[in-house]
């Protein structure tokens, strides 16, 4: 028996918009994934600690507040500090294209913007987890 894909969905900082993240949670659940949702207003450190304890395949952060260029570097540093090198980091929300390129260069595996259809989200997660392989 193998495990379902585990995904931690997080909302970070002063961002109360959680309709999108709840819809994503529901889509992933219906695709057979185990989804841990942290709730609103978490700090990057809290998100990293939770993702490590939950040993998720994918840490996905939803940001609609514009703080992505501050939040992601902290999350990447936090994972590194804890010696985690096989977790897939994803972002979702509203971000300018040049920031998306910068975040990917920083080590975020994929950014899916606000107009991404649910099937694309599921396919992307399944592909990234398959590419990573067993752990």
């Amino acid at each position: 028996m193998s495990n379902n894909i585990r995904v931690l969905l997080a909302k970070v900082g002063l961002d109360g918009h959680d309709r999108g993240v709840k819809i994503v949670a529901r889509c992933l659940r219906d695709a057979g994934m185990d989804v841990v949702y942290t709730g609103l207003h978490r700090s990057p450190e809290e998100v990293v600690a939770a993702a490590v304890q939950e040993d998720v395949d994918v840490l996905a952060v939803s940001i609609l507040s514009g703080a992505h260029m501050t939040v992601f570097p902290k999350i990447i540093a936090g994972l590194k500090a804890r010696g985690v090198d096989d977790m897939i980091l994803m972002g979702g929300g509203v971000m300018p294209d040049e920031d998306v390129a910068a975040l990917k260069a920083m080590g975020v595996h994929e950014i899916l913007l606000q107009d991404t259809p649910p099937n694309k989200i599921i396919e992307t997660i399944e592909r990234l987890v398959a590419d990573r392989g067993e752990r």
């Binding site: 379902n4 529901r26 659940r29 695709a31 994934m33 949702y37 709730g39």
Partner: peptide, 8 residues
């Protein structure tokens, strides 16, 4: 699948 929300 599941949605686990106890952490909230």
């Amino acid at each position: 699948g599941s949605i686990m929300g106890d952490r909230i």
